[in-house]
Write a protein that binds this DNA or RNA. Structure first.
Lengths: 110, 110
DNA sequence: CTGTCGTACTATGTCTGTCGTAGTAAATAT
DNA sequence: ATATTTACTACGACAGACATAGTACGACAG
């Protein structure tokens, strides 16, 4: 339905992913499910978007990856948030409040 | 300070511009001043971003342009919002409420 | 034992919007 | 006379999202 356009969420994909890594490491498929569930199907991140966000954030030092060989199941790449990642997340949260304030001056309510 | 990154405002430039055209036609320089003032300097749109938004939106039929030769001053290109533009603006406002709801599930307050 | 579905990715190339840089030119202020 | 403000246009670069496609393993049904 009233689907979210990629341009409006664009600035927040990293934030959303980092949020889901705050408490424990996770991996692509799980993250994508959590986004879908937490947003109540309102936002479903594209696989390519998600995985390219991981590589980008690893390059920027916001997350680090490790492999799970064990657990019998399929091989997965887990990501763990770093201190830099936590700081970046906090900055993005602060920025969100600013953005909200600004955009709402230009959105007519009714 | 904590300046707004282009990625987060990206999806809203068109909306912001259209908002400022709702009541009367306007032109680049004026729009850019109004964005700056209304946002209390929190968001200053880049000239190139603004003018390319105009051309894009004209192509999409959201605005139409006309020239002011008269008035003695410099030649300006004015833009007037169309019916399609108004509809698009309304859709974007609705989307904003959705986005807000979604993003706030992933932003930690404190 | 075969095929389909769900999981868990990787690779590649395209598109769009923003931005950096630069330049033009008229009007206005100093 | 010169600098600043106004009002754009042109061009090229870049980053993030996306479409499309492909790989590969495990589970489970028929």
């Amino acid at each position: 339905m009233g689907n979210i356009s990629s341009d409006v969420i664009r600035g927040y994909n990293d934030t959303i992913i980092l949020y889901l890594l705050l408490d424990k490491p996770s991996y692509g498929y799980e993250i994508s499910k959590q986004i879908k569930n937490l947003s109540e199907e309102k936002y479903i991140i594209k696989e390519t978007t998600l995985y390219s966000a991981f590589t980008r954030m690893e390059k920027n030092g916001y997350v680090e990856s490790f492999s799970s060989e064990e657990n019998g199941g399929k091989r997965r790449t887990y990501y763990r948030i770093t201190e830099d990642g936590r700081n970046y997340y906090r900055e993005k949260c602060a920025e969100w409040h600013l953005i909200k304030e600004v955009v709402e001056k230009f959105v007519r309510e009714e």
